[in-house]
Amino acid sequence: MTSKNPNYDFKWCPGCGDFGVRRAVEWALTARNEKFETRMQDHVIVAGIGCSGNLVHLMESIEQPYGIHGIHGRSLPIAMGVKSANPQLNVMIVAGDGDFLSIGMEHIGPQANRNLDITAIIMDNGVYGLTKGQSSPTTQLGVVTSSTPFGKIEGAVQPLAYYLEIGVTFIASHYSSKPRELAALIEEAMEHRGFSIVHVISPCTTYNDTYEELKGNKRKGIEPGIFGLPDGYDPTDKAQAVELLKDPRIPLGLVYREERPTLDQAYGAIAGKANSVTAEKILATYAI
């Protein structure tokens, strides 16, 4: 149920991190429209399947952008289709850790390789929330979930290190409780020419409530699980990024950025050279 559509029959649990991410996305799109004189209809949001993908239906403070709420794990190839069809559009993905890093993992490499010019906002809650609490790729080793009753026997995927290794050209990391900072990162990600991922830890209050682990609790002696980037950190230096990601905590900010031709730039360079040929002209070449 949303303010504009009472028929819509989905809602996030109270305290869900995705509320903060939604707010950040709304702010970032609004700021982008102001800066580049675009309209909401110039954005396409491709949503994964999971709690997070519902963000595309839940815009409250802005006009509805275009959206595709497709099939599980395939937001990247759908986004590739949109962007390669019309490079003028601003294309964003909203998906969760299950959708993006488990079933959808096979699509990250090819898009990184192509440097597809889109922005993926990944809401990582370390669990499958919509299906009620199974383990996800980012669930930690040993954690008991409904599908790992004796504790998870596989280690957690390290998404940021993976993105870096596989060639994503803009990697940012944050968490859902700071929507202003997150919005600024998303804006920067959208301005980056190439494949940008903003990986957001967005806790699930029902199945994997990690707010305390993230923010810390002095009284209980829990150190914060997040940390700011060190002074003088240079996100264009891959060696520094590699070093940074050895820290098991969640960095807040832009981890890595590199400039490389995008798919549409590379394709445009070829397509610009070739002349269109009509079916009639091609047919004539088969004459005997």
């Binding site: 289709g81 390669s84 069809a85 559009l89 490499g109």
Partner: peptide, 28 residues
């Protein structure tokens, strides 16, 4: 080839069909 045409080899048939969906949604 040429202006407003796009042809590309992608990484699987899953990519093919989903890219077609995105491209057609965008008007191709």
């Amino acid at each position: 080839l040429g202006k407003d045409h796009f042809v590309h080899q992608v990484s699987s048939e899953i990519e093919s069909i989903n890219a077609l969906i995105g491209a057609s949604y965008a008007g191709r």
